[in-house]
Amino acid sequence: MIPFLYGAGLFLLINMVLVFIRAVQGPTVIDRLLSINVIGTKCINLIVIAGLIFSRLDMFVDIAIGYGLLNYIAAVCTAKFYQHNKTLSPDSGASS
């Protein structure tokens, strides 16, 4: 079971790299926000899987709950920012 969990974690990390490509090339800031949000959700799963690999899930699960609770504050806050400040990019020359 441990090799399987190890493989699952590696697969999640590779997925994370794929999502990160979108954050690199994302034309707008909001695309980046979206992909970072997905990376955050993947981190919850990764921490739970790491807890199973260490076979001390009772210790790791608190971190995962903390993430699950706090993951969406950043998204909410950024959304509020864009509702006040209705321009997407400060200038046209935003490069990545």
């Binding site: 800031v29 950024t78 920012f81 935003a94 990545s96």
Partner: peptide, 9 residues
Amino acid sequence: IRDLMGSVI
């Protein structure tokens, strides 16, 4: 990234 919001995210 030149837009600071992008850097923060």
